[in-house]
Amino acid sequence: MSQTFNTKDVAEHNTVDNGLYIIIDNSVYSVAKFVDEHPGGAKILKRVGGKDASKQFWKYHNESVLKKYGPKLKVGELKEEAKL
């Protein structure tokens, strides 16, 4: 079952101990268990933890990476928030 998050919820998960969530194209992923496997190193994932990493992700990855790892890392969707 997929959860719905707002940006504040995701921001609270900005460390490995808290789950290390990132946003990619309005989907929320928990990358805490993937940190040590990440080919680019743990540092980059920790830097974008709790944030929207879409721009950084698409700069270095193609859609096949998301198809391969996305299903096991995805924890939910980002809820649309009102913009003032």
Rank of each mutant, 00 (worst) to 15 (best):
M1C: 02
M1D: 08
M1E: 07
S2E: 08
S2A: 12
Q3S: 13
T4L: 06
T4P: 01
F5D: 03
F5I: 01
T7Y: 13
T7V: 05
K8M: 02
K8A: 04
D9R: 03
V10F: 02
E12M: 03
E12Y: 00
E12G: 04
H13W: 01
H13S: 02
N14W: 07
N14E: 02
T15K: 07
T15L: 00
V16S: 01
L20M: 07
L20K: 08
L20P: 02
Y21I: 06
Y21N: 01
I22H: 09
I22M: 12
I23D: 06
I24E: 03
I24G: 04
I24D: 03
I24N: 00
D25Q: 13
D25C: 12
S27P: 01
V28R: 05
V28A: 10
S30Y: 04
V31H: 08
V31G: 06
A32M: 05
K33F: 11
K33D: 15
K33P: 10
K33N: 15
K33T: 14
F34K: 05
V35G: 08
V35K: 06
D36R: 15
E37P: 03
H38K: 13
P39M: 12
G40L: 02
G40H: 04
G41D: 11
K43Y: 00
K43W: 01
I44W: 09
K46V: 05
K46L: 14
K46F: 06
K46P: 04
R47K: 14
R47E: 15
R47W: 10
V48M: 10
V48A: 05
G49L: 09
G50K: 04
K51E: 14
K51P: 07
K51A: 08
D52C: 11
A53V: 08
S54E: 11
S54H: 12
S54W: 13
Q56P: 02
F57M: 07
W58K: 09
W58C: 04
K59C: 05
K59E: 13
Y60C: 09
H61P: 00
H61I: 00
V65P: 00
K67C: 01
K68S: 10
K68N: 08
Y69R: 05
Y69Q: 13
G70R: 08
P71M: 04
P71D: 14
K72P: 10
K72A: 15
L73K: 11
L73N: 11
L73H: 13
L73A: 13
K74P: 14
G76A: 10
E77L: 07
E77V: 06
L78H: 09
E80Q: 11
E80N: 12
E81G: 07
A82D: 10
K83S: 11
K83N: 06
L84P: 07
